[in-house]
Computed example of a mutant assay.
Amino acid sequence: MKRDSRLSGVLHALLHMAEQDQPMTSDTLAQCMQTHPVVVRRTMGLLREAGLVASARGPSGGWRISADLAQVTLRQLHDLLGEPAVFAIGNRHEAPDCLVEQAVNAALDDAFTRAEALLLARFAEITLADLAADFARRHARVRHRERD
């Protein structure tokens, strides 16, 4: 079963960008995201159109965050990526003739709809600033352990 990891990859790249004092190239971001630079440019282009990142050409060019991390939510990024399916599971047949399967579909559809609504509501509560703060805490703990 193929998973859509674009949101995770975008979050990873944006957090790396937030830690940098200078723009990051598509090649560097591609290494972070473990993908091809063309995929990075296409994805960052979507974020640029939304005003979340900016780009500059030339030897000192690249991508940088242009939005306030506290204002960017996971839900916003999920929506920008085309609202990929939250769940990879689904009904066996979408319009079955079998009454049993209709009952199964109705129960599953209701559960999927409720679960997705809860997840997307939670995505709306989590900002890039929250993730950056969590990263900073984790990084500080690792550095503290390395000194001991």
Results as ranks from 00 to 15, higher is better:
Arg3Cys: 08
Asp4Met: 05
Ser8Gly: 09
Ser8Asn: 13
Gly9Ser: 14
Gly9Cys: 14
Leu11Thr: 10
His12Ala: 01
Ala13Arg: 13
Leu15Asn: 01
His16Thr: 12
Ala18Cys: 12
Glu19Thr: 15
Met24Val: 10
Ser26Thr: 05
Ser26Arg: 08
Asp27Trp: 07
Thr28Asn: 05
Gln31Tyr: 11
Thr35Lys: 02
Thr35Tyr: 00
Thr35Pro: 00
His36Ile: 14
His36Tyr: 13
Pro37Trp: 08
Val38Asn: 15
Val38Pro: 14
Val39Glu: 02
Val39Ile: 02
Arg41Phe: 01
Arg42Cys: 02
Gly45Ser: 02
Leu47Asp: 03
Leu47Ala: 10
Glu49Asp: 15
Ala50Leu: 07
Ala50Glu: 10
Gly51Val: 04
Leu52Cys: 08
Ser60Cys: 09
Gly61Cys: 03
Gly62Trp: 00
Arg64Ile: 06
Arg64Gly: 01
Ile65Glu: 01
Ala67Leu: 11
Ala70Ser: 14
Ala70Thr: 02
Val72Asn: 11
Thr73Pro: 00
Thr73Gly: 03
Thr73Leu: 10
Arg75Ile: 11
Gln76Arg: 11
Gln76Met: 11
His78Ser: 03
Asp79Phe: 01
Leu80Asn: 05
Gly82Met: 00
Glu83Ser: 09
Val86Asn: 04
Phe87Tyr: 02
Ala88Trp: 07
Ala88His: 14
Ile89Pro: 04
Asn91Ile: 11
Arg92Met: 08
His93Val: 14
His93Leu: 14
His93Pro: 07
His93Lys: 15
Asp97Asn: 14
Asp97Val: 15
Val100Asn: 15
Ala103Trp: 08
Ala103Leu: 13
Ala106Gly: 00
Phe112Asp: 05
Thr113His: 12
Arg114Cys: 08
Arg114Gln: 13
Ala117Glu: 13
Leu120Glu: 00
Ala121Leu: 08
Ala121Tyr: 06
Glu125Met: 02
Glu125Ser: 03
Ile126Trp: 02
Thr127Leu: 02
Ala129Asp: 14
Ala132Gly: 05
Ala132Cys: 08
Arg137Gly: 06
Arg138Glu: 12
His139Thr: 13
Ala140Arg: 15
His144Cys: 09
His144Ala: 13
Asp148Val: 10
